[in-house]
Amino acid sequence: MSMDKLAIEHFLHGQIDCWNRGDKEGFFAHYRSVSTNGLSIEYLGKPQHDAWQVLEGMWAQQQPKIRVEVRQCIVNGNEAACHHLNAFREQEGGIETIELYRFEEGKLFVRYFINM
């Protein structure tokens, strides 16, 4: 079962919307809906950890400080590339990321490129 473009866009935009509104339950529900057979999250250049723990940590540490602004989101087939500005809520500026998403037979693979 491969995901179509609309389903991928629904996930991508929905999880960002939940993040920005502080809806943790909704945010995790979006991830669960596309990763029934597994979830992999990789921060390029860092060791891999349990993806659900990574999401929990990201939510706890970053969600209160960061609002995600979508610069570009391109879906081709079962993959998506997103350019985001992780804008600081309390001050000017932010951190640019390129995020790659691959949807494969109920598995979601995410790769984060962070411009430090």
Rank of each mutant, 00 (worst) to 15 (best):
M1V: 07
S2Q: 08
S2E: 11
S2I: 03
M3Y: 14
D4H: 11
D4M: 08
K5S: 11
L6W: 07
A7P: 07
H10E: 02
F11M: 05
L12F: 07
H13A: 01
H13S: 03
G14H: 11
D17R: 08
D17P: 01
D17A: 12
C18P: 01
C18T: 02
N20I: 08
R21L: 13
K24R: 15
E25K: 14
E25P: 00
F27P: 00
F27E: 00
F28W: 11
F28L: 15
A29H: 07
H30T: 02
R32W: 02
V34E: 00
V34C: 03
S35A: 10
G38E: 05
G38P: 03
L39S: 03
S40F: 01
G45H: 04
K46G: 04
P47Y: 02
H49M: 07
W52Y: 11
L55D: 04
E56G: 06
W59A: 04
A60G: 04
Q62L: 14
Q63K: 07
Q63W: 10
K65H: 14
I66V: 13
R67C: 15
E69H: 11
E69P: 02
E69R: 09
V70I: 15
V70L: 11
R71H: 04
R71V: 14
Q72N: 15
C73W: 08
I74E: 14
N76E: 15
G77D: 14
G77V: 08
N78M: 09
E79C: 12
A80I: 05
C82E: 13
H83S: 09
H84N: 14
N86E: 09
A87M: 06
F88G: 03
F88Y: 14
F88D: 04
R89K: 13
Q91E: 07
Q91W: 10
Q91I: 02
E96P: 04
E96C: 01
I98F: 12
L100R: 06
L100P: 01
E105V: 06
K107C: 15
K107F: 06
L108A: 01
R111C: 14
F113Y: 14
N115M: 10
M116Y: 01
M116F: 08
